[in-house]
């Protein structure tokens, strides 16, 4: 109950009703404003999606031109577009939309006018929704281009493309959450971008390599980039054996050759493992980002 000067009491329920309605209005207004604010970013991200698609298409054309046979199955052709470049594409889009989500307001002092018009919680939720939707839009553009080229080449559109798109969207949330987490305490947008790219491309990749060469059999569920594998694997179906033993050196290096020292290479997480892992990553990073944002002065 709220106490007035005359000792009157106002129902907490009434305050909650008004508060929830206002929360929805403010979150909605923030989403709309973020769409307007990121208008140029939308065009850039669509351009980046088109660029990645064209680059992959050129690789396919060159390979076929040099006598490498095109995959016989449409899903295999789709999977060939989902290699490392796709993970990099997701990272670039996440950095584009997530890096300035909080850091910019502190760097440029644009946050001065926002408070107390809106609470940090509502602003955070509104911005996350808007930027996640815009990030996924870029992924959808990539998949649309891919779907069209597959349909033209193979005369069919594999239904597993939707599953793959779903995993890509989920993975995007986790990567965006990582970038947003950095944005919550770093001062400059450019620092957030550099740090995010270093983290994903260097730290996670090195950790994966270390696990591999030490022969560790631990599934690297704690490595965010590991989850990107399910995006391509879900196209062809998750294999029963989700890891392979590979040689670490020599001419027989690679999967299937077990002469000399070997390491364990995990192909993909299981469906439940990926769902839980990505959810934990996203929730914990977003919670940490929100806490940092709330405490930030």
């Amino acid at each position: 109950m709220t106490v007035t000067q005359d000792g009157n009491l106002q129902s907490r329920f009434e305050q909650h009703v008004v508060g929830h309605r206002k929360s929805l209005v403010q979150v909605g207004a923030t989403v709309k404003f973020e769409f307007q604010r990121n208008l140029m970013n939308i065009l850039i991200s669509v351009g980046i999606a088109a660029l990645f698609y064209v680059m992959n298409l050129i690789i396919q054309i060159v390979k076929e031109g040099r006598g490498v046979e095109a995959p016989t199955e449409a899903v295999e052709y789709l999977a060939s577009y989902m290699g490392m470049t796709f993970g990099f594409f997701i990272l670039i889009i996440a950095a584009q939309y997530g890096a300035n989500i909080i850091a910019y307001d502190y760097d440029k002092q644009t946050g001065n006018l926002l408070f107390p018009k809106i609470t940090k919680g509502r602003l955070f939720v509104g911005r996350m929704i808007a930027r996640y939707l815009l990030s996924v839009l870029a992924v959808i553009v990539y998949y649309i281009a891919l779907g069209i080229s597959v349909a033209i080449k193979y005369g069919e559109l594999p239904t597993s493309i939707w599953t793959s798109l779903g995993w890509a969207a989920f993975y995007m949330l986790a990567v965006l959450s990582l970038v947003v987490f950095f944005s919550s305490f770093m001062k400059k947008t450019s620092t957030v971008i550099v740090f995010s790219i270093l983290m994903v491309l260097i730290v996670f990749q090195l950790t994966t390599t270390i696990l591999h060469i030490t022969g560790s059999e631990i599934e690297p569920l704690f490595i965010l980039t590991y989850y990107s594998n399910i995006i391509s694997e879900s196209l062809t179906g998750i294999p029963v054996d989700r890891f392979v033993e590979t040689a670490l050196s020599g001419p027989g290096m690679g999967p299937g050759s077990v002469d000399g020292p070997t390491g364990m290479a995990w192909i993909t997480p299981s469906i439940s493992g990926a769902a839980i892992g990505l959810a934990i990553y996203s929730i914990s990073l977003l919670t940490a980002a929100y806490v940092m944002f709330r405490r930030r002065q």
């Binding site: 709220t2 106490v3 007035t4 000067q5 005359d6 009157n8 106002q10 907490r12 305050q15 008004v18 508060g19 206002k22 107390p116």
Partner: peptide, 15 residues
């Protein structure tokens, strides 16, 4: 607020 002075708290700050 509505003719009466009310103590500002986190709960009623919105209104």
């Amino acid at each position: 607020e509505n003719g009466e002075l009310e103590l500002l708290t986190n709960r009623n700050k919105d209104s």
